[in-house]
C-alpha cells in the first residue's frame, strides 16, 4: 500500500505518495479543504490506476498480456486508452526518425545497471534484433509482437501521460490552481493571466540536492530527461546511463540533462527523451518543434531557449 500524506504548505494542500517506484506530490490551492482532499485523492487514484494498467511487473496488466504473446500468432486486442498510447508511440517513432522506440525493453536485460556491468558487442547483437517498432504489427485496434522476446514498455511515455491525466482529474474536480509533480515530470493547473505561477526548480544533473535553474510556470508542463537517474561509471571512466540508443543499444552521452516546457507533459517528456537521443542535433530539433528548453551539456554548460533563470 502506498504511503499517503496530506499536509498544508502555505495556502496549498499537498499530498505526497509513492507510485511508479518514485516519490510524487500533488498540490492544490486549499480554499475548501474537503474539496481539495477529494481532488487530491482522485488524482492519486488516477496515477495508481494507470501504473497498474501499464506495469510490466504485473502479469495481468495490458502491457504484460501483449508481451506474453510475443512470437505467437495471437493478436492482442487493446482498449481505447492503450490504443491512443500506441498511436502516440507510433507517431513519436516516425517523428524522431526511429529514435523514440517503446520496444527497447530487451536492451535493459543486456544492461545490468544495478551491478554496473557493460555488455559486450556480442550480447547486444543478440538482443538488438528484438528491438524496433517497425517490426510491430499494429493495426490501430490490436497488436502483435512477431518475435519471441520482444517487449513493449510504456515507461518512456507513461509517467508523463499520468501527469497529464492527474491534471485533468484536478481540473474536472473544480480545482483552479494545482501542481502535479511525478518525480520531476510535472504539469501545473492555473490561469496564467491572474494566477500566481509556480516556481519550479530543475535538478542539477551532477550535484544531488542542488538545482541548476528555476522556471516559473502558470500553466503547462515541464519534463526532464537526464543521464543521472540510473547510471554507472565504467572502470575506464565512461558514464553509462539508462537512456539507450535503439540502434546501437548503447547509452547516450551528449547531454547531462534536457528539460522541456510544453502545454502537455506527454509532449514535454517525449521531446526531452528524443532530444537526449539526438545528441548534437537536439537543439535544432527542439527549435523545429517550437519547444522551450533548458539543456545541460557534458561540460555542464546551460543552453536555454524561452526558459527559466539559472541558479548558479
Amino acid at each position: 500500500m502506498a504511503v499517503m500524506q496530506f499536509e498544508h504548505v502555505g495556502d496549498d494542500l499537498r499530498l505526497r505518495f509513492e507510485a511508479m517506484a518514485s516519490r510524487n506530490e500533488i498540490l492544490v490551492a486549499c480554499h475548501d479543504e474537503v474539496r481539495a482532499r477529494a481532488a487530491l485523492d482522485a488524482a492519486r487514484r488516477e496515477v495508481l490506476r494507470i501504473e497498474a494498467k501499464y506495469s510490466r511487473y504485473r502479469p495481468d496488466s495490458a502491457v504484460s498480456r501483449i508481451n506474453a504473446a510475443a512470437g505467437s500468432a495471437e493478436r492482442v486486442e487493446v482498449d481505447g486508452e492503450t490504443a491512443s498510447l500506441l498511436e502516440f508511440a507510433a507517431r513519436l517513432f516516425e517523428l524522431s526518425g526511429g529514435l523514440f522506440d517503446i520496444t527497447t525493453g530487451p536492451l535493459r536485460h543486456a544492461w545490468d545497471f544495478r551491478a554496473g556491468i557493460e555488455p559486450g558487442d556480442e550480447a547486444l547483437e543478440r538482443v538488438l534484433p528484438l528491438v524496433g517498432w517497425s517490426q510491430v504489427d499494429w493495426d490501430g485496434r490490436s497488436v502483435r509482437l512477431p518475435r519471441k522476446g520482444m517487449e513493449l514498455d510504456f515507461g518512456g511515455i507513461g509517467k508523463e501521460y499520468v501527469a497529464d491525466r492527474a491534471h485533468a482529474v484536478l481540473a474536472q474536480s473544480g480545482i483552479g490552481r494545482g501542481l502535479v509533480n511525478l518525480a520531476g515530470d510535472l504539469r501545473v493547473l492555473g490561469a496564467p493571466v491572474t494566477g500566481r505561477p509556480w516556481t519550479i526548480a530543475i535538478q542539477h544533473p551532477r550535484v544531488a540536492d542542488a538545482t541548476c535553474a528555476s522556471v516559473l510556470l502558470a500553466d503547462g508542463a515541464l519534463a526532464t530527461s537526464g543521464d543521472y537517474e540510473r547510471y554507472f561509471v565504467t572502470p575506464d571512466g565512461r558514464r553509462c546511463c539508462h537512456i539507450l540508443h535503439p540502434r546501437s543499444g548503447r547509452p547516450v552521452a551528449h547531454w547531462q540533462s534536457i528539460s522541456v516546457i510544453q502545454p502537455s507533459c506527454a509532449a514535454a517528456g517525449a521531446l526531452a527523451t528524443i532530444a537526449m537521443l539526438l545528441g548534437a542535433d537536439a537543439l535544432a530539433f527542439l527549435h523545429e518543434q517550437g519547444a522551450a528548453y533548458l539543456a545541460v551539456d557534458q561540460a555542464g554548460c546551460l543552453h536555454r531557449h524561452d526558459i527559466g533563470q539559472p541558479t548558479f
Binding site: S84, F88, L92, L95, A168, Q262, P263, S264, A267, A291
Partner: peptide, 16 residues
C-alpha cells in the same frame, strides 16, 4: 508535431 500527437491522448487536452 510532437505536441499535436500528445494532444490526441485521452484527457491530455482537457481545457482548464
Amino acid at each position: 508535431s510532437v505536441l499535436a500527437a500528445a494532444l490526441l491522448l485521452p484527457g491530455v487536452a482537457i481545457p482548464a
